[in-house]
Design a protein around this nucleic acid. Structure first.
Lengths: 146, 146
DNA sequence: TTAATACCTCAAGCTAACTTGAGGTAAAGC
DNA sequence: GCTTTACCTCAAGTTAGCTTGAGGTATTAA
């Protein structure tokens, strides 16, 4: 075991419940970073666990790694993120979550009203006018402002 | 233009805002179905638009085509779905939407409380205990009961 | 009737997000 | 000191969800 302050890939992987290969992958994609020890092995601060947790959380919301990376731009690369850095990120994230929850609620309401009714007229049915609910502004869902 | 009652792939594609290739794909995957005219061209009832709209809606919620297919098992393959068929499906869908909204809300609350605070102690931080929020029961998110 | 569209099939290609495997080095435990 | 376990790199493979392209047939509009 290394010093408490630094973590090996294995430790991070175990802690986050992901494979080591995923950590390599995230690092390669620039989503996380660390340094190497004398033997060329990866070392991380505990900071990385929070990042990975956020990655996993965001992915469950259908946010791509690219978008996550953009959101992480609010965090410093060199120094360990401070309370303020995280608060900033939390803020942005929070907004898109709120938006997304609202969208889902809207969709749920539409489904209830629309499918349940049989919609035999099909004129005012939002499911027959997919552009209303389903297609969001611009190409693809805008979840995080890049 | 063919008779009002039947639609060609092109018409469906235009109506749903997707590519013809996607329709071929969905048909091949068994998510939608229709028949062929004398010249071997695909024909559909307007029913298919609702199905595709639902596919698109569900996808936005991170539900896989496989899961959607399972959910569609509630709909008849041979006859056109009745009001009751759709109501049944709506019911199932509605439950998972409700669940998913709740999960998101929970995640949002955690982020607010956890990231905003800086979590310097890292003992009670849910983001450092990913198994609580992030990993759901069983392998992968359970969105629709298959 | 002829030209322009619209379709058809089948195979291959593409992006995201990883995983797997081969071949080799480092660190930890006894 | 030796063995086991943990890491390393790099290339190739995998799944989902489509798209693209080639080569050919149907349908429609003029």
């Amino acid at each position: 075991m290394s010093i408490d302050a630094e973590l090996s890939v294995g430790q991070v992987a175990k802690r986050c419940g992901i494979n080591i290969s995923a950590i390599h992958f995230y690092e390669q994609k620039g989503l996380i970073s660390g340094w190497r020890n004398n033997g060329n092995q990866r070392r991380y601060t505990r900071d990385v666990i929070r990042r990975i947790s956020l990655i996993k959380a965001a992915q469950q919301l259908g946010i791509s790694l690219d978008d996550i990376k953009h959101a992480f731009a609010a965090l410093p690369n060199e120094r360990t993120a401070t309370k303020e850095d995280w608060a900033e990120l939390s803020n942005v994230w929070n907004k898109s979550l709120t938006l997304r929850i609202a969208q889902m609620q809207k969709l749920k309401d539409s489904l209830e009203g629309c499918i349940g009714c049989g919609c035999l007229s099909m004129k005012n049915c939002p499911l027959y006018n997919p552009n209303d609910i389903l297609v969001e502004q611009g190409p693809g869902p805008v979840l995080l402002n890049k």
